[in-house]
Design a protein around this nucleic acid. Structure first.
Length: 338
DNA sequence: AATACGTGGAT
DNA sequence: TATCCAAGTAT
């Protein structure tokens, strides 16, 4: 059974002595803490840092972000992935602006009701910014707690995450924000997935899996499923005015990001001409092939270059393409025009 | 409950 | 190269 008081003391002492100087640890602004937590979802610290600095410079207050155009903030988010995160945060700060006088709610219930705020963000922001004693259970915390308690439950199940959250809330001390961050920091730097540094672990004496030499057996998790492989033709369509056909994606995947016409490989050129209302040049060999891997899909793309004399509102100056938010997959395609 | 949702780092 | 997985949320 975990000695809760001693565990918390050991962990917090280690955290304070080894605290990394991360940009979002220099602020008490709930908006900036919230922004950092949204960016950090499923994203490594080193990836987030430049984006966090860009956003806090360009949108230093909640109102700045709320008043921005969605396309502009998507452009600034470009390359960070999971684009619904910033679209939801935009909706959420607009809600805070209109309903809460631009003040981030300092109570869990209204905060958790905002778009994109789930159990993790709710606990992280309410504990770090407002010192509420709510757990923030991420992948790090799940791994640390599974090893501490030789917990055989599957951490990929929501029921396990809910249960771990309740458990952490039975051991969380008054310094709840620091405690939550310390638990995550321990998982990120010491209690790592493959080669945990148990020798230097500040809570080694509390760890049941260390005692039984079974650290690497935890956490238990069902293995990821196979990705769907998809084959597309993507068309770079140029007119005689140095413009290219490009439009905003309204599907769920990469919603709001701009794309070039992309069709299953068996789609006929006639169908495409009809869909785009363009008369296209003869289809030749692809100028390139690209592969792009998502969490759940792999795209194999043939890149074609086509010309047209037709008019359309979807043409954009080639020199201005980079002003639009474009996914990495489509950037891989576009680079072959140069 | 199970799956969709991006991208890049590490091994 | 293949695989895991990283401060998760919405549906």
């Amino acid at each position: 059974m975990l000695n809760k008081n001693e565990f918390a003391l050991n962990l917090l002492e280690w955290y304070h002595n080894n605290k990394r100087d991360l940009p979002w640890r220099r602020t008490n602004d709930p908006y900036k803490i919230w922004l950092s937590e949204v960016m950090l979802q499923q994203t490594q610290v080193q990836t987030v840092i430049p984006y966090y600095n860009k956003f806090t410079t360009k949108y230093p207050t909640l109102d700045d972000l709320a008043n921005a155009e969605e396309q502009d903030i998507l452009k600034d988010w470009e390359g960070l992935g999971y684009y619904n995160r910033i679209r939801n945060l935009h909706l959420a700060v607009k809600e805070v602006q209109s309903s809460y006088d631009s003040i981030v709610p300092n109570e869990p219930e209204p905060f958790l009701a905002l778009k994109g705020v789930g159990p993790y963000i709710g606990g992280a922001v309410q504990s770090i910014a407002f010192n509420h004693r709510i757990a923030a259970v991420d992948g790090n915390v799940l791994r640390v707690m599974a090893r501490l308690n030789v917990d055989d439950r599957d951490i990929s199940k929501q029921s396990t995450v809910r249960s771990v959250k309740l458990f952490v809330e039975t051991i969380i001390p008054l310094e709840s924000g620091d405690f939550n961050q310390a638990l995550m920091e321990l998982g990120a730097t010491v209690c790592t997935p493959r080669i945990p540094k148990c020798v230097t672990c500040p809570v080694q004496s509390h760890c049941e899996s260390f005692k039984s030499n079974s650290v690497l057996l935890y956490p238990k998790s069902t293995k990821s499923k196979k990705k769907t492989e998809l084959y597309f033709n993507v068309f770079l369509i140029l007119n005689n005015k140095d413009e290219i056909y490009m439009f905003k994606n309204d599907k769920n995947l990469l919603k709001g990001m701009y794309k070039f016409p992309k069709y299953d490989i068996d789609t006929s050129i006639d169908t495409i001409e009809e869909a785009l209302n363009l008369k296209l040049s003869q289809l030749k060999e692809p100028i390139a092939e690209e592969k792009h891997v998502f969490t759940h899909q792999v795209w194999y793309m043939n890149v074609y270059l086509l010309y047209t004399n037709s008019e359309s509102q979807h043409f954009v100056k080639i020199s201005e393409v980079n002003e639009y938010p474009i996914s990495v997959a489509m950037q891989k395609v576009f680079k072959h025009l140069h």
